[in-house]
């Protein structure tokens, strides 16, 4: 990403952001609500139009509305906050749709791969269930498998646990930790600080549409460089709360 700027009307959401993600790197993006984290991810696969700068995957430019976009997006797996499965398709139907119809891969091969992944994320035997029969955490794991079966070069996770009950958060984070350990390239937006610390190679702290900090998790969580980051992190501490 090079000098990317995104505005909604007069409001600048991303302000001259430059960022390089290396292969195999796990980057966790954190920051207060409205700081532009989600917009950052949405710009990367051109769900949002950018007003300045450019975004490249490898050597190819990602451009809103371009003809090449559908094929580029196949290399970018994205998982959204609200486990957005298609309600009229089964688990397997959801997973195999894009690999078979878009990438024209062999159905049996895709299904075997899908079932293999479902087993690994703890959803064995659920391939013929409909999304409405699954819990939020299960749906989110299916959404992750759906993204994986596209064989993406990079995975984007947009607050994937924000809409889940606490017990379900863990099962989804475990899957993501396992993927991180496999050396996949991932860009994760989250509010789960402990997970961020455990999974990330790099932490980006965003505020007001700018990257305020870009450091390794140890440094960020123990010695944040900016006052803004210190204040943000302190909101997750409950040790010094005064009794009323």
């Amino acid at each position: 990403m090079d000098h990317v700027t995104k505005r909604f009307g007069n409001h600048t959401v991303l302000d001259d952001i430059s960022l390089t993600v290396h292969r195999g790197e796990v980057i966790v993006v954190i920051g207060p609500s409205g700081c532009g984290k989600s917009t950052l991810l949405r710009c990367i696969n051109a769900l949002e139009k950018i007003q300045g700068g450019e975004i490249k995957l490898g050597n190819e430019k990602i451009e809103y509305g371009s003809k090449r976009l559908p094929s580029l997006r196949q290399k970018i797996g994205m998982v959204f906050q609200n486990y957005e499965l298609f309600p009229h398709l089964t688990v397997l139907g959801n997973i195999q749709l894009a690999p078979v119809k878009v990438q024209k891969r062999n159905l049996a091969e895709v299904q075997a791969e899908a079932i293999g992944w479902l087993d690994r994320v703890g959803l064995e035997g659920r391939e013929n269930s409909y999304p409405r029969e699954l819990s939020g955490g299960q749906k989110q794991r299916v959404a992750i498998v759906r993204a994986l079966c596209m064989h993406p070069e990079i995975l984007l996770f947009d607050e994937v646990t924000a809409a889940l009950d606490p017990e379900m958060v863990r099962e989804v984070l475990d899957v993501m930790l396992a993927l991180a350990a496999q050396g996949r390239t991932m860009l994760i937006v989250t509010h789960e600080m402990r997970f961020a610390r455990a999974a990330a190679d790099r932490i980006l702290f965003l505020d007001g549409g700018k990257i305020m900090e870009d450091s390794d998790p140890e440094t960020f969580f123990t010695h944040p460089q900016t006052e803004r980051a210190r204040r943000f992190l302190s909101t997750f501490q409950f040790d010094n709360i005064k009794k009323l």
Binding site: L72, F86, L97, V102
Partner: peptide, 21 residues
């Protein structure tokens, strides 16, 4: 809107979006 976005993110074209989703 998310159904449109999800299928876009999966690389489905407009025609495929209507046909399958």
């Amino acid at each position: 809107a998310h159904q449109y976005e999800t299928s876009e993110a999966l690389g489905l074209g407009k025609a495929q979006l209507y046909r399958y989703i």
